[in-house]
Simulated assay, not measured.
Amino acid sequence: MSLLMEESYRGFLNYVGGHEMTILHEDGLYRHVRFGRPGSCGWFQLVTWPGYLSITGDFESFTFARIPDMFEFFKERDGYINPGYWAEKLVAQGTKIEAVSAEKFTSAVVHDFWERRDDSIGENAALFRAIREDLLDQAGHGFERHALDEFRHYLDDGTKFTFEDWWEWDLNDWSIHYLRACHAIVWGINKYQAAVAEKAAVAA
């Protein structure tokens, strides 16, 4: 599991530690299951109908379509998600599934600086200080591309250092909203199926 997915999972667990499950509707493949309560931090609900699953709540809204019982499609162990494959099954989304990765952004900026650095140690130090303050310290705030476009630093000889062709850089990764929604789906289905199994065991 990537570092981003590990961090998204830990963050997700912090939201749902005290969540209670409420089954609002259950009729075969027609389900409406809520976790937490509207207004509480990190609440969400899962709604299924034949061929579809929709998640709404604090982790944004996403609707997937694949097989008749979508609870079976997402049935995985806690902590494991497959965002790339699942993204292919999206039919509706309330927000973007990708965003600039702070890790990729930092790596690309540092690599570009390193490839183009000057022979002067003092010049390099001043330039990298400006890069750190104006770019690297902004990583993860959502304005990385704008910061790259606006960055200007004048060297001692009067030449201007800017980042060229940065729009060709691969800076994106999965958005935190999408990853947490994926974790919520798997976690919620596991809770639901455990409750159904327990109910069946008691009835037997």
Rank of each mutant, 00 (worst) to 15 (best):
A181Y: 07
L135C: 08
K75A: 01
V110G: 01
V33W: 11
I189M: 02
H141S: 04
A204P: 09
F12A: 08
S2M: 10
L136V: 14
T95A: 12
V109L: 15
F151G: 07
A203L: 14
F64L: 09
T95R: 13
T56I: 10
W166L: 01
N14A: 08
H146R: 15
G28P: 04
P83M: 00
D58T: 02
H183L: 04
A201C: 02
Q138Y: 01
A108C: 07
C182H: 03
A125V: 10
V202H: 12
E20K: 13
G158Q: 01
S107E: 03
E7K: 14
F12Q: 04
D118Q: 08
E198H: 09
T56D: 13
V33Y: 12
K104V: 14
A197R: 09
D170F: 05
T159K: 06
V100N: 04
P38F: 06
I67Y: 09
I67T: 08
H111Q: 06
D137E: 13
E133T: 12
Q93V: 06
A194C: 00
E144A: 07
Y9N: 13
G28F: 09
A130H: 12
T95F: 12
A102K: 15
K89Q: 14
Q138V: 07
R37G: 02
M21N: 03
Q193Y: 02
C41D: 10
W166K: 05
R37N: 07
S107N: 05
L148N: 11
G57S: 10
D149M: 06
L171G: 06
I23R: 05
D119H: 14
F151N: 11
I97M: 15
A87K: 10
D119Q: 12
R180M: 14
L179Y: 00
A195E: 08
S107D: 01
L90V: 09
N14F: 08
T95D: 05
F105I: 13
I67S: 02
E144W: 08
T22W: 06
I81V: 10
W169H: 11
E144D: 05
W166P: 03
L24R: 12
M5I: 13
R117T: 11
W166Q: 07
E198K: 15
A195N: 00
T22F: 08
R129K: 06
E133I: 10
E72K: 15
E115K: 14
P68F: 02
